Amino acid sequence: MTVALKASPDDQALLLEVQQLDTRLQQLDHRSKSLPALAQLAELAREEEQLRKTLAQQRGGAEDARAELKRVESDVAVVEARIARDSDRLQHSSSTKDVHALEQELASLRKRLSDLEDIELTVMERVEQEQDALSAAEGRLAELRERVVALEAERDEQLKGLESERVHARANRATVAGKIPPELMALYERQRSRYGVGASHLRGGVSGASGVRLTESDMARIRSAAPDEVILCPDSDAILVRTAESGL
């Protein structure tokens, strides 16, 4: 359909350049949001979160094992001190009754010490295992962080290149848009904000915005319109730009 606006065919044709640049800017925005590095970084972030949870559990396990080892070592030290004390008393005792009691207590203490040393050995092995697991997890985290840093650098470099292209496209758009009458440009912006496309090239009877061939009745109306009349595409509602390729 036509609108209450007229513009020279050359001015209307400039809209195709603006639309091409707007499409390019949309593509650059899409590429900025869909870089492979972004998906990889998101996956690594999930891995890192899970790994940090695992590390927290392993640190807790290692700390518990070390605390248990300290308790056992403390118990060993207490028993060893009692054995040393009773041994000294035994050497200096002249009472048969006391000697017998001390010998019984020492036998009990040595049994207790043997049991504690077995426990100590088991806990020491556990401490070593917990520490090995913790070190391995910390190593995996360090490797993951290295991958993240490398991917972030790759992402930043790609975004920098895309932003450079974006700045160039925006500058070109501003230059072309500055040549278009304000009323026509305002209509283009309004249609683009509403329908996603502001200008559509009619080529061989097909609207570029919709990819649909116009009906014969639509084509007849377009042929009867003056060259400076502004026409909207019946399918996409974008400004329909007519050129020598339009098949009119």
Rank of each mutant, 00 (worst) to 15 (best):
T175V: 08
E245S: 15
E154V: 06
R66Y: 10
V230R: 08
P227Y: 03
A225F: 07
R110F: 04
L15R: 04
V212T: 15
A153S: 10
Q20W: 11
S200F: 02
D22E: 13
E128G: 05
R173M: 05
L214Q: 02
A13W: 00
V79N: 03
R126Q: 14
I83A: 02
R89N: 04
L134E: 01
A174W: 05
K33M: 10
V206C: 02
L232T: 03
L162E: 04
P181L: 03
L141I: 07
D237P: 01
K160T: 10
G178Y: 01
R147N: 08
I119F: 03
D29N: 15
A174C: 07
H168E: 13
L184C: 06
A150K: 01
R110I: 00
K179R: 15
V79E: 02
Y188N: 04
A67N: 14
A45S: 13
L162C: 09
R166C: 04
S193A: 15
T122I: 12
K33Q: 14
P181D: 04
S236A: 08
T23I: 06
R170K: 11
S200A: 06
L102C: 11
E68F: 06
S207P: 00
H30R: 10
R59Q: 07
E49V: 03
S94M: 07
G196Y: 05
R194M: 14
L184T: 09
A81V: 00
A42G: 15
L113Q: 05
Q129A: 14
A42C: 09
L44I: 07
D10L: 10
L121E: 13
Q50G: 06
A186E: 11
L35F: 05
Q20L: 14
Q27F: 10
K111H: 07
K70T: 15
L44W: 10
E128A: 12
P182Q: 09
L69M: 14
E154Y: 07
G198C: 08
Q91R: 13
A4D: 15
A136R: 12
T96D: 04
Q91G: 11
D64S: 15
R170Q: 09
A84F: 00
E117C: 01
A199G: 04
P234F: 01
A177R: 09
D218K: 03
R71A: 09
D10K: 14
V212E: 15
A137E: 02
A13H: 13
A238C: 01
A62T: 01
A7D: 04
S34W: 02
Y188T: 04
A84W: 02
Y188M: 01
T54E: 13
